[in-house]
Every structure is written in C-alpha cells, then in structure tokens.
Design a protein around this nucleic acid. Structure first.
Lengths: 198, 198, 198, 198
DNA sequence: TATGAATGAGCCTTCATTCAT
DNA sequence: TATGAATGAAGGCTCATTCAT
C-alpha cells in the first residue's frame, strides 16, 4: 500500500506553493505549471487533490481566513481590541505573499459566489469580535458604528500594506497607528463620562 | 466612411465599454471580443487605438483616476474635507462598474509597474489634499497621521462598498460615516483647545 | 475588409478534413490538431467556425445525412425502390471515409441526444420513402413490415460494407443483392395474386 | 489477505463492470477510474490482470462473442434457423449494455486489427451456421446468398435495437420479424417445389 | 496479490494579436 | 480609418500507466 496520510501534507504544500506563485506573478498569471513546479510535483496532482483550479483557490482562501483567528485569551476588553488588530496584521507581517493573495481574492470575490461568501464570513467575524470588545467600553448606541468603522480602518491600513509590499516597515507602523486610533476614540467617551460625572 | 476627429470619441467609447465588461465579468474574463461587442466595433480597433491590452487597461485606469478630482472650490477647511470625501465616493456611487474595476486594478498593480505608479500618484494626491485641509484645523504634529489615517478610512469604507456592489445604500451610508468620523476626530482637538483656553 | 464568403468554403473544407481523419484514425483519436493539419489551417479555426468539437461533429453528421437524399424523380414505384437503395449505398461507394464515420456516429449516438435525433430523422425518412414506394405494390397490411424490414436489410448490408472497408467490391455487390431481395419479395405477392386470380 | 484462484473471478467482475460502464457513459468516456469504482477495486488491478486498456477491451469483446453461441441441439433445420436468430438476439435482450458495447466495438474494429479479427470470426461463424441450416431447405445455388442476406438482416434489426435502447419491446419484435422473414423466404422455394411437383 | 498516489503527455479551448482587404 | 478572419501559444484538465508499499 502506498504512503498513507500524505493528503494533508500534499494539500498544504500545494497551498503554500500557490501563495508563493500568486505573490510572484499575480493571481491572473498563476498557472498549474508554475504551482506544480514550485511544489516540485506534477501538474496532475492539483486536480487530483483539489478537483480543479477553483477548488485550489477556494482551499487557499480558506487557509488564509483560518490564519486570521485571534490567538490568546483576553479578559480585558481593551487588550482584546489590541489583540484583534494584531491578529489581522500578523499574517501579512509574516509573509508578503498573503497580502497580495488577499487582494487578488477580494477582487475575484465580486465574480465568484464562494469567494464572496468566504469574504463575508471573515468580515462578519471581525465585526462580531470588535462589537463584543467595544460593548463594555462605550455607550451601546455607538458600538455598531465603532465596530464597523474600526473594521474599515483595519482594512484600509491593511490595504495600504498590501499595495506597498516592499515597504515592510508599514506592517508594524499601521498596526500601531490603528491601535492609537482606537485608544483615542475610546478616550472621547472616557472624557465625556468624566465631564458628566463632574 | 472614416471620419476625422473620431479618435477621442472612439477611445472614450472603448474605455466605457471596458468598464462595463469588467463590471459584468471581472478583469480576468475581460476580452477584446467582449469589449468590442459592447462598444459595437471590431476587435481590431482596440489594438489600433491602444496598441495592446495593457494600453487599454492603463488608459482606463487613467480615466478612473481623473474622475476622482475634487469638484468645486472651498474656502472653509472643514467644507473642503467633506468635499474630498464626496469626491472619493462619487464615482462608485455613480456607477457600480468603477468600484469593481478599481479593485481589480489595485490587485493588478502589485504586478504592473505602470499601474502601481498610477495608484501611488492617486494616493499621494489624496493625502496631499487631506494634509492641506487638516493643517488649519489641528496641531501640526498630528496632521500627517490624521491625513494618512483618514485616507485609510476612506479606502476601507470604499473597499466595503466595492465588495458589496448590490448594497447600493452603502455608498451614501459610508460617505456619511466617514464625514462623522472626521468631525468627531476634530472635536477632540476643539475640546482640548477649549480645555486649555479655560 | 477581409475576404467575404469564405465561411461556407472553410466549413466544408473542415468537414472534409474531419471525415478524412475519422477514416484514418477513428473518431476516438480524431483531434483538432489532426483535422487542422489535414485542412492546412490552424487549430483555432475550428472553434471559430463550429464553436467546439461537438459543433464540428454535428455539422459533419448533418452533411453526411444530407448526402443520402434520393436523386432524381421516379414515376414507377419499383424504380423508386431501386433508387432508394442506390441513394443509400452511393456515399459509402464514393468514399470509404463516410462508412467509417457513420459507424462511429451511430455508436456515439447512444450517448449524445443531438446525434440520436439526427440518426432517428434519417431512419424515419428512409422508412417513409420505402413505405411510399411499397404501398402501390403490395397489400396494405404488409407495407409497414416490408418497409421496416427493408430498412434493416439496407442497414445490415451497409454495415458489412463499413466493417470491411478494404473490400470495395462489396459496395456494388450488396446494393445489387438488396435490390434482388426486394424484387423477390414483391414476386411473392405477384404470385399469390396470380394464384388468387386463377 | 490475497486469495489464490481469484483470477478468473476478478477478471469476470472487471469485464462485467466494463460492460456496465460502457452502457452508462459510452466507450469513449469509459475510464479505469469508472471501471474500478464500479467493480469496487483499485485502478491498478486492471493493468495487473489485463496488461493495459486494450487488453481489457479485447477480453470484453471475446466475452461478448462467446455469449452468442447457439444453445441447444436441433435436428430440424428450420428449428435450427430459429435457434440461431434467438441466440443472436438473446444477449442484447438480456442486458442493454451488450448492445451499446457491440456497437462501440464495431466502430472501433475499423482501427484495431485484433477487434477486426474477432468481429470477422464472429461473422463467419454466423454465416457458417446459417449456411449449414439453409442447405437442406433450399436449392444449393441460393444457399450462399440466403445465408449472407439473412446475416445482414439479423445485423440490421439488431442494430436498430442497439440504437434505440429504451425501446425494449424491439428486442422481441425484431427477433420475431426476422423469423417471419426467413419462413416467408423458405415458402418461396416450397411453393416452386410444389409447382414443379405438380 | 493488491493498492492508489503520482506522473506527464496530450487533449480541447481561449484569446491577444496580426494583416490582407 | 476600420474590419474581422486567421493564427498559434498557452491554459486547465483528463486519464492510462507506473511503482513503492
């Protein structure tokens, strides 16, 4: 019997190769030939494991989404907010490839129902996390807007990182900037609370 | 019968057709055949006027960039900030096509030096405009951060619009939200100014 | 403007090339590469004129079907029957290719609704022609069976020709044999008529 | 745990699976993957037992040919003729699969020397059987033609059954029709004999 | 004896680009 | 100036066959 348990390994190897190739030539020029060469396998293996190109792309996106999960457990809401920001900047900070890939997938998601769903799930999770963390910190009527605006700010800063992949210093700078912005935002309500208390 | 002076008209018709096709099928599936059919011309005319596909895409991006210019003259800095926001949401509000196209071009810009340059020019102009308007309103040491963060917020909200092209109500909502956020941001400094003045 | 009126010519050239290639290597190994090489054109031209492979195959079958039409006008029913036989053996007699192609298409027709329909139309036309010609010659209650059995005999003899493409003498022999059989069949009723008349 | 003496069983299971798959998707789309799945075995086993695809196809044809042997022993020549007809319609009557498969193999036989030989052997045996049975019944100078024409009629009627696999009633109808035709044919000579005798 | 993961040649099809008209 | 027929390279995908286990 041939080697067993190779499937998860091979799949991950192919996903890694896909991310690398997308980083190098862009999603539009990403071909089976380039991916299989990068992975050191044959072209047939991709269809074998993922059915077709869409299957590979979907799996790659799902992998990227899974990388965004918040690590660690936070008891302090503010610490949790900072953790969310870090979790969203971590992958792009780890590898330039994921930033470019995300951008391509977002663009593609307007034409592909599955990608669109994945992207929506991802966004909803982010907003849900933010909402949960903002709630103890600010008045209820501002929570929704705070969460959605913060999500947009993360996306916007993140987008800038992806568009300037050579400027690696942006990753840390923008994560920092995002945290500062949140803290300043919270300060407003602390101030007005104080004002009211006085 | 060929006519003289047709060139600018033909070029614009082809650019419009290109945007429409990108909106309908995505940049990856945008072909000369679809564009020329949409424009009611032959496939050959595209190479004739734009040299090759890249020439057409570049011209289309340049057209989109030109659409973002701030309309009107503002004397009040705050009014000018609001005008910048409106100018950035106007094109996507006018036609769903430009949102999708922008997203595709951004993704492509990581692989194409010309697109990258166009995208950088656009961004620098936005930040320059924001900087100019923030300067009279907040302390000098916060201007740069305010401009860049606001630019990111605009991009992030705009991105959400582009990713949810069916939800047309987002265009106005996000423009509004962006303006509210800017005003609240300015309020901070007004408050602290007042506090100091007292 | 490029040459006009090329389409019918090109289409026929490609159909002829297809028949030749099917004859040489069989339908299963008939490829765009072989067909376009045989026709002295590029591979792309086939999709250009026929959409896809199925389009080409369907057009080729339709051409073969059109070749089976009975030539000439007959007033005498018996002469007409002989004409029908000749019309059915003529194409295979003219070119070995059509015999092999027909066989392949028949085999394929069990998997392809369009081919099945074409084959049924063809068969119904043959039986209709035979019925029309038998009617004045034999009692009404035997016409249907005579037509269907004769159709089967034509198919069976024809099949033998297609399966032995090297034995070109079979074409004439089987056409002759078919006619003899029909005449002998008619003789039966002539005899019994005479018997009854007596 | 491998067993000894499995070979004949495994081979037959694979041949049965092959016939089933050919019936379902046609010879052109019959793949090792489908066959092995149908048989509940691995893809490798086919090459293991039959060498390659051609080996499997040849074995399948040989199996079909073997199914056509006349069952039973007949003393009466006329009964024997009817038995030959029954033997030729029996397989297709038993399973729709064999009809489709035969048709595919016939088409393929024009490109494959081995298949062609098998098909010729089969035909010669049929004609030999018919000749042997016709000889006591009709004048010697008509035997050859009677045998060959009857063979063609059987093929033609059989072909119609294969092309209309949904119409299962055709199997019995055409077998019957074939027998009637033979009897009417024999009647001719009986009549003329009687005439002469008178 | 039996497996099924892996290969890679070859298929159909798409499409930017060319060029005779 | 404008056409669109024609090209042919390159893509995704299929599948018979191999071979380590």
């Amino acid at each position: 019997m041939p080697k067993v348990g190779m499937e998860p390994l091979r799949r991950q190897q192919l996903i890694d190769a896909t991310l690398k190739v997308i980083d190098e030539v862009g999603l539009a020029r990403t071909t089976f030939a380039l991916i299989s060469k990068e992975a050191g396998m044959s072209t047939g293996i991709i269809s074998h494991y993922f059915g077709n190109k869409k299957g590979l792309i979907d799996a790659t996106v799902r992998y990227l989404v899974s990388q965004l999960r918040v690590k660690g457990v936070y008891t302090d809401p503010l610490q949790r907010l900072m953790g969310i920001v870090d979790a969203n900047f971590a992958p792009i900070q780890r590898s330039r490839a994921s930033g470019r890939a995300w951008l391509s997938f977002w663009a593609q998601s307007t034409q592909d129902a599955d990608l669109h769903r994945l992207q929506q799930i991802n966004r909803k999770r982010l907003i849900s996390n933010l909402t949960y963390s903002f709630r103890p910190l600010i008045p209820a009527e501002h929570v929704k807007e705070a969460a959605e605006t913060t999500a947009a700010l993360i996306d916007g800063l993140w987008l800038h990182c992806a568009l300037e992949p050579e400027r690696q210093e942006l990753f840390a700078l923008h994560a920092k900037r995002c945290k500062v912005h949140i803290q300043r935002f919270l300060l407003q309500f602390a101030t007005s609370n104080n004002a009211r208390e006085r």
